[in-house]
């Protein structure tokens, strides 16, 4: 089998400020990886990166999508949102830096740990953002 062949793929639509479903896409991803027997430490890293990215859509954007793919070698997440974008990506990658509102903090988020935590848990992480348009994250976690 080709190392790049896609064994499983699913798209999730995420709505901004929808707390009824916030996190459910990432829990589905986690459960899928658990069912197919992915090692605990790996599926946990995927779950955390996915959940952080999903919560970023819910908290900051109007809407977004998570594309989840599994190949024989890795798990890939492509997370796109239609939101305000990030003015200074370098600054946003610093632990503790946050533009969160009081409302977001009351939900338990906005500590300025999300993006650095995604980077910490991913084997490959690329962020592209256009102010006024949105943000795109590419995340990869290797299976071995």
């Amino acid at each position: 089998m080709n190392n790049n062949s896609v064994l499983f793929e699913e798209d999730f639509k995420i709505k901004g400020w929808d707390f009824t479903n916030a996190g459910e896409a990432s829990l589905k991803i986690k459960n899928y990886l658990k069912e197919v027997g992915i090692a605990e430490n790996i599926l946990k890293r995927v779950a955390i990166t996915s959940y952080e990215a999903e919560m970023n859509i819910v908290l900051y954007a109007k809407e977004g999508t998570i594309n989840f793919k599994v190949t024989p070698k890795k798990v890939l997440l492509e997370v796109k949102d239609r939101g305000p974008g990030i003015e200074d990506v370098e600054l946003a990658m610093k632990e503790g830096y946050s533009t969160a509102t009081e409302e977001i903090r009351n939900m338990g988020f906005g500590a300025g740990m999300g993006l650095p935590n995604i980077k910490k848990n991913a084997d490959m992480f690329v962020i592209k953002s256009e102010p006024g348009k949105g943000t795109k994250l590419n995340i990869e976690v290797y299976l071995k």
């Binding site: 009824t20 996190g23 829990l27 946990k44 779950a47 955390i48 959940y51």
Partner: peptide
């Protein structure tokens, strides 16, 4: 001290 639904989702994600 947080009692919203996000506490549960976070707990489920992090075991």
């Amino acid at each position: 001290g947080l009692i919203n639904i996000q506490v549960l989702r976070t707990a489920a994600i992090t075991d």
